[in-house]
Design a protein around this nucleic acid. Sequence first.
DNA 1: CAAGGGCTTTGACCGAAATCAAGGCATTGG
DNA 2: CCAATGCCTTGATTTCGGTCAAAGCCCTTG
Lengths: 242, 242
Amino acid sequence: MTVREDIHSAGIPVLCQSCEARHRGVCGALDPDQLVGLAKTSSRHSVEPGSELIGDAETVDSYSNVLSGVVKLTKSLSDGRQQIVGLQFAPDFLGRPFKMESEINAEAATAVSLCSFPKTAIERMMKQSPELEHRLLKQTLNELDEARDWMVTLGRKTAAEKVASFLLMIARNIDPTLDPATNATSFDLPLTRADIADFLGLTIETVSRQLTRLRTDAVIRIDNNRHVTVDSLTRLASRSGA
Amino acid sequence: MTVREDIHSAGIPVLCQSCEARHRGVCGALDPDQLVGLAKTSSRHSVEPGSELIGDAETVDSYSNVLSGVVKLTKSLSDGRQQIVGLQFAPDFLGRPFKMESEINAEAATAVSLCSFPKTAIERMMKQSPELEHRLLKQTLNELDEARDWMVTLGRKTAAEKVASFLLMIARNIDPTLDPATNATSFDLPLTRADIADFLGLTIETVSRQLTRLRTDAVIRIDNNRHVTVDSLTRLASRSGA
DNA sequence: CAAGGGCTTTGACCGAAATCAAGGCATTGG
DNA sequence: CCAATGCCTTGATTTCGGTCAAAGCCCTTG
């Protein structure tokens, strides 16, 4: 069971008072008393696609729960080559505990809404509440797992398998209409072709060609360049290389 | 500062009684009283290169500190394609807290010595000692950082850059004779060409050819197929693509 | 020493994906 | 309505790394 599933199934809805929304991110680990303290300092934001959330530019001093939308984590080489090293969906927690040396950027891939807390507030709370740190450890272990799965994709899969794996991963994360009977599903791509290329270690052209192939082979349909309909998840999975 | 450096610089030597060795892994987070309890259940092992430490076969029910040697973490696709997703050096902590779903294998790349504890003992201790969980969180964050760095290497670097990056990483981790003056260093490769290929997402032949190129360009020397001498770390770094 | 096996190197050739180059198709704004 | 802009697709060509094949080099073992 992933952390995400765990939080969902635990079903701990927490009224985060400042952002006036019920959500289930890391806040779910706090007891009501603690939460009231935290809520006073939290605030809800909505940001445009493309906004930089964590970057080299401004030293960001806050943590956030992702309430909706998709955030991409990227790293770049000095000559501009870029790689997306992670995607965060609701209710993931966004931020860098204990300043790591690694330079990472976070950018809104879609419209994103966040509930943010000052770094100091979270860090104070973490000292008091082992349960909060435990939650964080679990999310981190989960992200590590995902990162390692993608290392296999990046290092050992063909372009066709990479694209199929990507679609499968997105479907699993934001699929609104999973139909177990027909084994079909549909969703909006949260990333542009360029982002997908940066995620899979390919070029835009190769991503486009592979999507075209999946379309002509009738594995998927794409409307408005965004909305994907997968006719058979199993057929897609069989092309993802395990 | 990496976790590894942190543990080293903190300089917390702990006498782990059962293995009768001073080491500084996760045990360093425990106070002496707790340690006595743990030490009763711990034991020191030495394993041959190639031994499987964590695998699909036997469900391993213990955690370990790596005392010396190098452990490779691998993942495989159903058709046998393999990817190394991490390397662990002393004093890293080896094991899977909270059973994750991801199937991962750990195998001794070199001769390895370990200090192992039963899973139950560590887990009991973790509930009592927030400091232990904190250490674990820090190591996990560090591994996540490393994994994401390698995603950039796997997705966006050329074969030449991959091999240079690999040598640089190994040098940083097990360099016994770093000479800041001449900027030179030397070390034994802990991995075979096949392992290096699995780590970098390349074939054996490509790894061999790139090493040959570095040799003919006088950036490195290799003796006995194992012992590498880097004449200029900066020159090597300049070939690693940042 | 010779034989054998495991690992590594090297060479010739091939192919998947990158690069280079147009062109299409929406949305936006004058 | 017609540029203009930003994505996306498609085609032609090139190239980097993979594949196939052979040989070299150690190291062990009889």
